[in-house]
Design a protein around this nucleic acid. Structure first.
Lengths: 133, 133
DNA sequence: CCGAAACATATGCAAATGCATTTACCGAGG
DNA sequence: CCTCGGTAAATGCATTTGCATATGTTTCGG
């Protein structure tokens, strides 16, 4: 294992993450009133196209369970998602997207993609890229 | 540019960043009493092997100027760096590493590298890497 | 059927961060 | 020499996050 390669990869990840997060926060926030975490949660729900358990979301977004709980609470307050108890297991909570949430996501998606494109289009990871996956 | 590739790259960056940050926080914190930001600042100074202006550090670490100011304040309180006014431009501040800081960095470096190795050794970015997979 | 252990989610709290502002200083122009 | 616009760093403040814990619910052994 080349230690140099590992450290270079880490620096790449740090730099792109900082740049992208900063840009996403600015663009999504100014144009759509969403933070990156909020967008990510909306995006996961839309992607699955069904109501999800908090727990399922927890596995997909990179947030602690408590942070996720609060993101969902903010989204609910903004009427972009709604929470409902799970009948089968009443400890659980289902989160489903509202019409407003779907609309907001549709509006924000192009902004999100544009930011990522600008940041990653010409920035292959250390080691170079060949094709895909 | 393939939009799919860009989004995959973003997910890769998000996942590795979260995983590495979490592990670094745990390992560096438990074993050496340092946070990732604190280590990064120490590491930059050691790498240059001279006293640096806050501003120079600001260009190299992925923190806002205010966050950096506070990280340096914490490091100073822990006696790992010392601050001194810059004679040439008395608005500026020089940060230099202390012996204790150098020692701490030397101790922490293997931990840092071990964490990165574990996380990045077999995890090429989307697009794959030319050399090893 | 009961009680204990395990679980899913929410919440109290402390820490870290970014933005806006403040403070101190430099440098050019009148 | 003095003032004004700009720069370097520090600080007030609000927000987000994670950890530890609380609350409510299920499940399993006896």
């Amino acid at each position: 294992m080349d230690e140099r390669f590992v450290v270079d990869t880490w620096h790449y990840v740090l730099a792109r993450h900082a740049k992208a997060m900063c840009a996403l926060e600015r663009e999504l926030g100014d144009r759509h009133g969403l933070g990156p975490s909020e967008f990510e949660v909306l995006d996961r729900i839309v992607h699955h196209d069904r109501k999800l358990r908090i727990q399922e979301l927890c596995d997909e977004v990179h947030l602690s369970q408590s942070a996720l709980s609060r993101v969902v609470a903010r989204l609910e307050k903004a009427e972009l998602v709604s929470r409902g108890v799970c009948d089968a297991d009443r400890r659980g909570v289902y989160v489903s997207i509202t019409d407003a949430g779907r609309t907001r996501h549709t509006e924000a998606l192009p902004t999100h993609r544009a930011v990522l494109l600008q940041i990653f289009a010409d920035a292959p990871a250390p080691g170079g890229t060949v094709s895909r996956r």
